[in-house]
């Protein structure tokens, strides 16, 4: 039985889905931390997997992953996830990264349909331009899953599900962490003006946080010393602030340095991972960072498309599948750091 052999291979991955579907309460985030280790064990196995699995079946299938960007550490980790899933399952994955140009993505989607793709996974930064082409993919009988962005539109498309993080829910989780740390007033610093996702993170924080949240733009990442000085000025002017959340890794570190310059003991939380940020968490200077576990955003769509095509499975019950928030805390920082060096976190 070829199929059952393959199902065995994907069992750890299914356990992972179950863990991340649960939502944003603390237990589940602990759970997701544990599954990180399982990803770790799965990842090295991934290289061997194609030899173990019978390649003829999976080799028939070709999935397209069409994203709006491949900048930076985020997308390279996501791509590794997708590649690992394709290798595990023995399917062909066509990676089509965009350049924040919806027009290019539309062309890629249309090309994928024309090529007779067995499944399309696409991010949805610009619903107005992309919903139509994806609907026609569904109409042509190609299963579609949206990833990363598109949680509001996947149902309209008729996609199987959406795999991604809700910024608001991620912010909610951060808010509870600040509650646990006993903070009373948080400065939520943004590194861009008018970025919806960043604002949602802060607003999500304000929803669950029991104290006061001040949401402000604190200077661009391009000039970190200005960022640091601006946060310093805000902290000096308002001595009631006892927590800082940066909605990106660079501004989080700027917040830490500003607090250190003022000898202020703040609870600091951040978003996304960089080795330096994880190092500071390990050292206990930063309480946590929110991790959207983008490896899953690459891995899961491939897996779910595969199961849908081969076994007619659907997952999520029509609801989006959340890959975050996972949290990196001093407890798991060392392990995460090792994984991030491997490139799966």
């Amino acid at each position: 039985m070829k199929t059952s052999k393959k199902l065995l291979a994907i069992l750890p991955a299914l356990a992972l889905v179950a863990a991340s579907c649960g939502g944003s309460d603390d237990n589940s985030s602990e759970g997701s931390t544990d599954t990180a280790a399982s990803v770790d064990s799965a990842a090295p196995a991934a290289t061997d997997a194609p030899e173990e699995v019978d390649q003829t079946q999976g080799g028939d299938l070709t999935f397209h992953m069409i994203t709006h960007s491949d900048d930076g550490p985020f997308w390279s980790v996501l791509k590794r996830g997708a590649d690992a899933a394709a290798a595990d399952l023995g399917v062909t994955l066509v990676w089509k990264p965009g350049v924040n140009d919806a027009q290019v993505m539309v062309q890629d989607i249309e090309a994928a349909i024309a090529e007779g793709s067995d499944g399309i996974a696409a991010s949805l930064p610009d619903p107005d331009a992309l919903v139509g082409p994806l609907q026609s993919a569904v109409g042509a009988g190609v299963p579609v899953i949206t990833l990363n962005s598109g949680s509001n539109d996947y149902q309209e498309i008729g996609a199987l599900t959406h795999v991604g993080q809700s910024e608001v829910i991620a912010g909610n989780g951060a808010g509870q962490r600040f509650n646990d740390a006993g903070a009373t007033k948080i400065l939520c610093g943004q590194q861009e003006q008018g970025n919806v996702a960043l604002t949602e993170r802060c607003e999500g924080l304000a929803e669950t946080f029991s104290g006061e949240v001040v949401i402000e733009f604190m200077g661009l990442d391009a000039d970190t010393s200005e960022q640091q000085n601006t946060i310093n000025a805000a902290l000096a002017a308002d001595t009631d602030i006892d927590g800082f959340m940066g909605v990106g890794p660079v501004i989080t570190l700027s917040g830490l340095r500003a607090a250190q310059d003022l000898s202020r003991d703040l609870t600091i939380g951040g978003f996304d991972l960089t080795p330096e940020l994880i190092g500071e968490i390990e050292a206990g200077n930063i309480a946590f960072t929110v991790d959207q576990q983008q490896y899953l955003q690459g891995y899961m769509p491939v897996l779910l498309l595969f199961l849908n095509v081969t076994n007619q499975n659907t997952l999520g019950g029509g609801l989006p599948i959340l890959t975050g928030p996972g949290f990196v805390t001093p407890d798991n920082a060392a392990e995460i750091l090792a994984l991030s060096e491997v490139g799966t976190r």
């Binding site: 003006q193 402000e216 733009f217 604190m218 200077g219 200005e226 000085n229 601006t230 946060i231 000025a233 805000a234 000096a236 002017a237 308002d238």
Partner: peptide, 19 residues
């Protein structure tokens, strides 16, 4: 040019106005 960033933040005004 560097004064407004610090100044607005010190005055605890909304930094959206900086530019």
């Amino acid at each position: 040019l560097s004064i407004p960033a610090i100044g607005i933040s010190s005055a605890r005004w909304n930094t959206d106005w900086r530019f």
